[in-house]
Simulated scan of single mutants.
Amino acid sequence: MDDASQSASQAARATLAHFADEASRFDDPLPTQSIHFAVPPMRTLTWRVNAPATLRIHAAHVWVTRACSPYDHWLQPGETLRLERGERIWLSTEAAVPARVSVTSAWRPPYAGVRRGIERMGAWLALLTLRRASQT
């Protein structure tokens, strides 16, 4: 291998290491955000989940129906249910008092997905450069 291809290979490895370091910062646990609301007695609310979340019941029994599931869930106070991104749920209660519910998900900084996509593309380009350098 000549000096030019060795330096290209070293540069590509350094770029890959940089992107690996940058990507690892997304592995740290992020703060969470919670939305608290009440389900009125004898009413049904619907919710579309925008990010993976946890549904927690705080007061009164709640009936949860998931759009893509043949099963319904009766949750008691203190119980949780894991929800996936894009899922639609319906919540209702037969109690005489409103049921208190919270939906908690990880907080993501604005444009985190775009930033991560750009970093992945950069890592892919660095890998492509490394492969081409090793072929010559």
Rank of each mutant, 00 (worst) to 15 (best):
P40F: 06
T104D: 06
S69E: 15
E119V: 07
A20W: 01
G86T: 09
L83S: 08
F19Y: 15
D21P: 03
L130P: 00
S69A: 04
E22M: 11
S105N: 10
R132A: 06
H58I: 05
A38K: 12
A67T: 02
P52G: 08
T32C: 07
S34F: 09
R85L: 04
P29C: 07
T46W: 11
G117K: 04
V64P: 06
P41L: 06
S7L: 13
L30H: 13
T46K: 05
R132M: 07
E94V: 05
F19C: 02
L81P: 03
A67S: 10
T129V: 09
V64R: 11
F19H: 07
E94M: 13
V103Y: 07
A96V: 15
V64S: 02
L30V: 09
L30Y: 02
S34N: 01
L125H: 13
R131E: 01
A20T: 02
T93H: 08
T129D: 11
H61S: 08
E22L: 13
R116L: 15
W47V: 04
E94G: 10
L75K: 10
L83T: 08
R116F: 14
W74D: 06
G113C: 00
L16T: 01
P109Q: 05
G113A: 09
R100I: 07
A20H: 10
L127A: 15
D72Y: 01
A23W: 09
F26W: 09
V62E: 00
T65W: 07
R66S: 10
T65V: 03
L81M: 06
A133F: 06
G113P: 06
T80W: 00
W63M: 02
P70H: 01
W47M: 07
L55P: 04
V49G: 13
P41A: 09
D27R: 12
R43L: 08
S105C: 10
S102Q: 02
L91E: 08
C68K: 05
R56N: 07
S102K: 05
A112S: 15
H58L: 15
A112H: 00
H18G: 01
A23V: 00
S7D: 02
R66G: 05
D72G: 15
P40Q: 13
R115F: 05
A112K: 02
S9H: 03
Q6C: 04
W107Y: 14
R120F: 14
G78S: 01
A123N: 03
G117C: 11
T32K: 09
T129R: 11
S7P: 02
T15V: 00
R85N: 14
V97G: 01
S134Q: 11
A38T: 13
A112P: 01
S24I: 00
L130R: 11
A12W: 00
E119T: 01
S9Y: 03
A17E: 08
A17C: 07
R108M: 10
A38F: 04
R120E: 13
L125D: 07
A23Y: 09
L55C: 05
R100H: 10
A96E: 15
A11S: 15
A51L: 08
V62G: 03
S69F: 03
A67Y: 10
L128H: 08
T15G: 02
S69D: 15
H18C: 02
